[in-house]
Structures are given as structure tokens and as C-alpha cells.
Nucleic acid binder design. Sequence first.
DNA 1: TCCTTTATATTACTCCGACATATTAGTTTG
DNA 2: CAAACTAATATGTCGGAGTAATATAAAGGA
Lengths: 275, 275
Amino acid sequence: MLKVVGKDGGGEVRSMNDSMTNGDAPPETVGEMGSDEAAPKARRGTGRRLHGAIAHKLGAAIVSGEYRPGDTLSGEVAFSEALDVSRSAYREAVQVLSAKGLVESRPKTGTRVLPRSRWNLLDPDVLAWAFSGEPDIHFVRSLFELRAIVEPAAARLAAERRDKTDLKDMRDALGAMRRHTLATDAGRAADRDFHNAVLSATRNDALVVLSASIGAAVAWTTQFKQRSRALPRNPVPDHVKVYDAIAAGDVEAAGEAMRLLVDLALEDTRSAMEG
Amino acid sequence: MLKVVGKDGGGEVRSMNDSMTNGDAPPETVGEMGSDEAAPKARRGTGRRLHGAIAHKLGAAIVSGEYRPGDTLSGEVAFSEALDVSRSAYREAVQVLSAKGLVESRPKTGTRVLPRSRWNLLDPDVLAWAFSGEPDIHFVRSLFELRAIVEPAAARLAAERRDKTDLKDMRDALGAMRRHTLATDAGRAADRDFHNAVLSATRNDALVVLSASIGAAVAWTTQFKQRSRALPRNPVPDHVKVYDAIAAGDVEAAGEAMRLLVDLALEDTRSAMEG
DNA sequence: TCCTTTATATTACTCCGACATATTAGTTTG
DNA sequence: CAAACTAATATGTCGGAGTAATATAAAGGA
């Protein structure tokens, strides 16, 4: 009934952060919706598919702690009806969450939220969901700690193995960083490009993949930095030091310069979030 | 036609490692099957669902290079018919692969394999698929290099932050390692437990998640080690050195002991795979 | 009394066939 | 020759029917 889905007739971009706050129903099964039939309906923006939008909605709700580990979602039929989507779309969304280790579905038991340790927190999508709300400061510190471990070591490897192409990529990224500031999208993209170029120069696939995750997280936090106050420092000189050391093949200096860069970024982010 | 699916009338547990070797169709669209209608049908073992089995089959085929980046899978209807499964099951499998960054589906264009850089190589499932066939030696080296970066740093953090519970977990794991050898499943599990305990002691969620990925990869390579020749060295003393340093709170010694441990493991694996 | 086995109910899983939507490619028109 | 329009095609979405698996409860045996 009244399943007007297609036919974008009228802006039906309903609110997202609406009811579904089941704080009064502490027992177990979540996903119920008290209201009669006005559906929450997480509508997608252009390009995103419906099941993608549902996965985003549910994933964000899970990582934000709205659904806690051990909770069991209300059944497929009930939940898909509550969201006003077909069971197919809902199931495909659940498959995505299951693939990322957020939930597990079994007959008779239902689909329940897995413990945090099973979550694929380094998955770019999961990171995006985690940062779509208020990010957990503790988790952000974890990410920067990981970055402080990985990136200096990567810079050392890059100083050993880089070739002319890698150096050119880094120079290009540095130039773009100089032209645009970190306040613009282009500037942040250039920052990512620089770090990606360093990681790529390590000739290590695992590190490159990890860079995609860390880079995404750093991009989010950088945006938070910008939100709170104007950029406090010009990041280009620090990056140039890293480049110079890598270009010179100086392993120790490269690692040290990158360590300094990450430490400063962490300092900025911490003061921005705590302050 | 003749899609007798349900009603288990007759054992329809077809073969798994069957045809679908499209080495002779190099152009682009893959997934075609020359034979008339004898379906390949990747059947699942108990517990695994059908779409999970399909995802495993396709995922393994992609990471093993059978389908190369840029290739376009034949349409949903054609491919699902070729696999003798419903379109729904096939679509759910593709959603899983899409969630892990292996493929991307768009209307009209079809489903195509994404470039390696988009793959979520640290995802436990993807790692399992990568190691289900002959693992790429270069990739294994990358993983150990990452391990050599992360684990010593983690040991240093653990030496700072561990509490009594962490130390007890490590002791228990060491005891289990002593009782069983690395040749048994229980022994390998104990090895994983020890490293997980170290990572947990860092109080860093990102590191813990990474440990799940690295641990899985190490487990696979350890099995390969065992396959080639009897275990060449008793790993317990090296682990004890790490434990002693962490228990004593000696940051430098912990990092150094762990570095040595990982280096030796890499050495063993390399000689086992190259030899 | 306790453990094992069987029955049952609930839930996810699979299948199907139709329609909607988006994107590319070809066609027409200015 | 270029831009807008039309048509074809593959993915996306839908709803309903039926199957398989499993946790819980009941019955039986030690």
C-alpha cells in the first residue's frame, strides 16, 4: 500500500536521523518502529543504489552504537516493511554488512550484530560510516597511532626503492598542495596523493591497501580540523622535508621527517577535537 | 526450463572444481560456458549458504587472476543460469564482492572487475580466497613486511600498557604452544592467540583489527611452511623472549625481540616457498 | 534424575517472473 | 557537424511462494 517508490514526484527526501530511537525498548530485538506507517525511508542520492543507501543507514547505526553487539534485528519481513523497501533490497544490504563483519545471519536466530572485534574497521565504507556521525575520539587516536607506525616505516622503504616516476608523482602532489590550501577539496586530494605516492613507492601491495584506509580516515579528520578553526600551520614545508629525504635516498632522514609530520598532524587533530 | 532446484530429488551435489576455464576466450566478457547445459554449480558445504559459495568461487577466480581487472562478467541472467542458481542468489554474491571492492556493477554497463588497487586485500575473506589457490610469493612478502612493521611497534606499545590480564593471556597461549606443536591446528591457534594478546594489550582498536587480517595470513603461510618440510625450529623460546620483555615493561627489548621473531618467521617461509 | 532423541515452529534462504530505472548507442533534427 | 531525442539493454527493485536449517520444547531411554 502506498508504495510510491519510483517517480521522483516531489522532494521526498525524508529526514534521516528521525525516530527509530529505541531507547525505551532495551531488551533485544531492534528495528521496531512505533509509529503507525510513516516510513523512515533512507532515500538515496543520485548514483547510490537503494540497497547501498540501506547499508549506509544500518551500518552507520551499528558503528555509532545505536544497535549494540548482540542485538538481533527484527526479521526480514518486518524490517524491510518498516523501511518500506522490498525484501530483496534489504537482504542485499544485509549481505554487504555481513561481508564487512558487522552482522551475521542465521536461520531461526535472525541477524544479529557481531562484537566489535569482528568488525572490519579498516574497510573504507565502515570508516565512512564511523565518521558520518560524531567520530569516537579514542578510535581516532588509534588510527593516528597506526599511521604513526606505518607511514614512517613506509617512508624508509620508499627512500630505498623509489624510482623517477614515484618522485615525479610526489612533486606533482606537492605542487598541487602549494596551489590549493588544505581548506579546499583539491588541496586535501593533493595531500592524499602525496601520501599515496609514498606508499606506492614501497612496492608493497599490503601497504598500498592500508594507505587507502588510513588515507580515508585522515581525510575525514582533516575536515574536522578545518571545521573547528582555520588551518594553524602550513603543511607544505614538512612534506617537502619528507620528499627531499626520499629523493636523496636517506632512509633515516625519511623516516624521521615522516614521523615528525604525523606527530604534528596528530597534535593538530587532538587539539581541534578536544578543545 | 528444467530448473528443478528445490525438492532434493536425487543427489544434485555437482562437482566444484569443474570447467568454467575460459582460457580460450580472451576478449572480454567472461563467464560464458561452452557446454550446452550441464551446470557447473558450485555447491556449498554444510553451514555455508549458496550465495556465500558463489561469492567464494567468483572471488577466488578474481584474485587468482582468472578474471582480470577490466573484464566484464556476462549478464546477470546469463551467468546465474550458467551457475544454475537464481538471479537473487547470484546478485547477493555480487553484492558481497562489490562490498569488498573486487567488482563494480552499473546499469547497462554490467559488472566489471575493478583494478587491484581497489581490492580490499586485508579483508579476511579476500585473504582466504587469495590463499585458496597458489599464493603469490610477492604478495606474501608484502604481508610479512607489513607484519615486520606493525608487530614490533605493537610489542613496544604492549610493554607500556599491558595489565595483568594481558600477561595471563600470553602465558596461557605460550603454555598451549608448548603442549601442541606448530604442526597441529591447536598449536597454530595458540600462536595466533599469543599475537592477538600482544595486539590487544596495545589498547588500540585499529591494531587489533589489523591483527585479525595479518593473523589469518600468517596462519595460511604457516600451513605452507609445514607442507614443505618439518618444522625447522622451536618457536617457543623466541616467543618467551617477547613475553619476558613485555612483562618487564622493557619497551626497547620487546620491540627488538618481536622484530627478531618476525624476521625468523619470514626467513623460514621464504626458504620454504622458494626452495 | 539426567542425557539423548525426536518433533515442531520460527526464521532466514532460495527461487521466480514481472516491472522500473539508468545508461549507452544510434538516430534524427537543427 | 553538433546537439537533442529515441530506442535498446542490462542492472535495479519488487512481492510472493516455497524450501531448508536450527533453536526450543517435548518425548523417550539410560
